[in-house]
């Protein structure tokens, strides 16, 4: 399942919603992304996340379905926020549940790595010098590349 929303989310409530009633789940992995304060602790580095409504939901659904094809998952939930966010706020959450921990941990890492390089979101940072679009990082591409299948790479 995926959700794209402006509002905050409750990780504990999402975990309970994903696992309640499924006793086949033995491992639940989570990743939560937060807005990091880039202004040296002044708290003065809010950002605005823009996205492409429609394509965002489509891409996240595709990525989620791919995780389910690759790992024996009992459930998953991806939530990504948009709009203006202050340092310390939650941006993104990935939950994956499986019978065993390895599938849960690996699929969780896959989902966040893949999402970062595929899902159409852009961060506009507020800096003392004005608003600035965050540049994509090569390290994110490398993180996603480790999940590329031989037949789909390149």
């Amino acid at each position: 399942m995926i959700r794209v929303q402006r509002e905050d989310f409750d990780v504990g409530a999402e975990m309970r919603a994903l696992t309640t009633g499924n006793t086949g789940i033995g491992g639940l992995a989570s990743f939560v992304g937060l807005v990091r304060d880039m202004a040296g602790g002044t708290g003065d580095s809010a950002m605005t996340l823009e996205h492409y409504p429609g394509m965002t939901e489509r891409l996240l659904t595709e990525i989620d379905e791919e995780a389910h094809r690759r790992w024996p998952l009992e459930g998953s939930m991806v939530i990504h926020r948009h709009g203006r966010l202050e340092p310390g706020e939650q941006i993104v959450m990935v939950l994956t549940a499986s019978a065993h921990r390895q599938a849960a941990l690996d699929s969780c890492a896959f989902l966040i790595d893949w999402l970062k390089t595929q899902a159409p979101f852009w961060k506009l940072e507020e800096t003392p010098d004005g608003a600035s679009w965050v540049e994509a990082r090569a390290s994110d591409d490398q993180a996603a590349a480790r999940w590329a299948k031989p037949e789909t790479s390149g």
Binding site: G33, L49, H51, Y52, M55, H80, I91, V92, I112, L115, K116, T117, Q118, A119, P120, F121, W122, K123, W133, V134, E135, A136, D140
Partner: peptide, 10 residues
């Protein structure tokens, strides 16, 4: 058709 820079979400 949409044109955009490399994505920076997550």
């Amino acid at each position: 058709v949409a044109l955009f820079p490399p994505v920076t979400g997550g």
